[in-house]
Computed example of a mutant assay.
Amino acid sequence: MISRVYRATLFALYQLCIVIGIVAMPFAIATRQAGLSLPIHRLLSNVEQAYETAHAQ
């Protein structure tokens, strides 16, 4: 039961990270033009990897 809740929480967190990435896209484009970058891709890949690991078990 706990693993089911854990997987559902990771899935929700993964979806939330995707939404944050989409919403932050204009800001990310502006910061890229200023020579900076937002590390949203690292957050998304870490959450995706955790979800896939939990889903495989």
Score class of each variant (00 low, 15 high):
residue 1 M to R: 15
residue 1 M to P: 11
residue 1 M to L: 14
residue 2 I to E: 11
residue 2 I to T: 04
residue 3 S to W: 08
residue 3 S to P: 00
residue 4 R to D: 13
residue 4 R to K: 12
residue 5 V to S: 11
residue 5 V to Q: 14
residue 7 R to G: 00
residue 8 A to F: 10
residue 8 A to V: 02
residue 9 T to Q: 07
residue 9 T to Y: 10
residue 10 L to E: 01
residue 11 F to D: 05
residue 11 F to E: 07
residue 11 F to R: 10
residue 12 A to I: 07
residue 12 A to F: 13
residue 13 L to P: 00
residue 13 L to R: 13
residue 14 Y to P: 01
residue 14 Y to K: 03
residue 14 Y to H: 13
residue 15 Q to A: 05
residue 17 C to L: 11
residue 18 I to W: 13
residue 18 I to H: 09
residue 19 V to Q: 04
residue 19 V to K: 06
residue 19 V to D: 02
residue 20 I to F: 15
residue 20 I to N: 14
residue 21 G to N: 08
residue 21 G to K: 00
residue 22 I to Y: 15
residue 23 V to P: 00
residue 23 V to G: 02
residue 23 V to D: 00
residue 23 V to H: 02
residue 23 V to W: 05
residue 24 A to T: 10
residue 24 A to I: 07
residue 24 A to Y: 06
residue 25 M to W: 09
residue 26 P to M: 15
residue 26 P to N: 08
residue 27 F to G: 13
residue 27 F to I: 06
residue 27 F to K: 04
residue 27 F to L: 13
residue 28 A to L: 08
residue 29 I to C: 05
residue 29 I to K: 14
residue 29 I to Y: 14
residue 30 A to L: 12
residue 30 A to Q: 07
residue 31 T to F: 10
residue 31 T to M: 15
residue 32 R to H: 11
residue 33 Q to Y: 06
residue 34 A to G: 06
residue 34 A to T: 03
residue 34 A to P: 02
residue 35 G to E: 01
residue 35 G to Y: 02
residue 35 G to S: 02
residue 36 L to V: 04
residue 36 L to D: 08
residue 36 L to P: 05
residue 36 L to A: 15
residue 37 S to D: 09
residue 37 S to P: 00
residue 38 L to W: 03
residue 39 P to D: 12
residue 40 I to R: 00
residue 40 I to M: 12
residue 40 I to N: 03
residue 41 H to F: 15
residue 41 H to C: 01
residue 41 H to V: 06
residue 42 R to N: 14
residue 42 R to T: 08
residue 43 L to W: 15
residue 43 L to I: 04
residue 44 L to A: 07
residue 45 S to A: 14
residue 45 S to I: 05
residue 46 N to K: 14
residue 46 N to V: 04
residue 46 N to G: 08
residue 47 V to W: 03
residue 47 V to I: 13
residue 47 V to E: 02
residue 49 Q to C: 07
residue 49 Q to H: 13
residue 50 A to E: 11
residue 50 A to P: 01
residue 50 A to V: 00
residue 50 A to L: 06
residue 51 Y to I: 02
residue 51 Y to Q: 02
residue 51 Y to M: 00
residue 51 Y to E: 00
residue 52 E to H: 07
residue 52 E to M: 09
residue 54 A to W: 01
residue 54 A to L: 01
residue 54 A to Q: 03
residue 55 H to A: 08
residue 55 H to G: 01
residue 57 Q to S: 12
residue 57 Q to W: 15
residue 57 Q to M: 04
residue 57 Q to E: 12
